[in-house]
Amino acid sequence: MDFIQILAEATRTAIGPIAAIYALAAIGLNLHFGYTGLLNFGQVGFMLVGAYGVAVTTSTYELPLLLGVLVSIGCAFVLALLLGLPTLRLRADYLAISTIAVAEVGRLIYRSTVAQDITGGVYGLQQVAGDFYAWNPFPSGSYGIDAGAFSITFSARDVWVMTVAWAVVLLASLAMYVLTHSPWGRVIKGIREDEDAVRALGKNVFAYKMQSLVLGGVFGALAGALMAINQQTVHPDAFMPQVTFYLWAMLLLGGAGRTLGPVIGAIGMWFLLTMFDGLLRDVSAMGLLPGIAGGELGALRHAVVGLALVLLIVYRPQGLIGNRKEMLVNVK
């Protein structure tokens, strides 16, 4: 594989459906952390209930897909209330602890034997996309650029998922832009800075934090629903805690507290992951990495990306499009 091909493959992943799904979930996290200052370490929990909302509706109960999406949103709403009611009145760290625990407990419940009749337990659910692919308006074939070494092509199926997923990302970004440039956004940004000060000005801080948690959670659930649709199958172990940390990495890479931060972060992160993967494989094929092969390459790829993130935090703490002046201001 030459370098041009690696670049093409990296670009392909960066604009593909998975990147869009991660971008959407990261937008939710950006609302939580970037704008409201809520430390949510369980965004994957919202993706979990979103994915299963669709899967259980279409596969277990054989109901329409759009109803499944509504179920996803409803589940995210309930999860946000469950998380927020006991913890949002407390200090920020309690929410952080609860979210990571609840997301993991949720995964264990969905994969438990007790829930197997509904969620499929450890086997997950298959054929969960309902009529989604029947609605595909793109005639089958290959789409994209096919220029010798630099070729990026998608199947009609992929193009359809990408269209829908990126459209949702666009709508979510627009909603975020409007919200964060409104007086509502001013209040949540104030809460991020100092919630007592905002409370002293007569704002119901708890209600705002809850609204933020619910809306960001709904974005996460929609990402989960798209994930189910894209893979046409759901499996509990796709929702491990590290998914949340990928989302955090993307958000920080792009720039928290910026409308396009999570989108650019998701695209950038998938580009880097795929590129390093290709490069390492090439280098390994040349015999320059003695003793490292196969699965270990995947681990090494993550280590390299991790190093890149560390360097980013040292030299560009505000992310790719963040504001350095804001970042470096002493917060208290």
């Binding site: 001013r186 209040v187 991020r192 000060a197 905002v198 507290g257 201001v329 917060v331």
Partner: peptide, 15 residues
């Protein structure tokens, strides 16, 4: 408790 990453004007409007 100045809301440090908001502008002075935003601080005022928030109130």
């Amino acid at each position: 408790k100045a809301l440090t990453r908001l502008t002075v004007m935003e601080n005022m409007l928030l109130a």
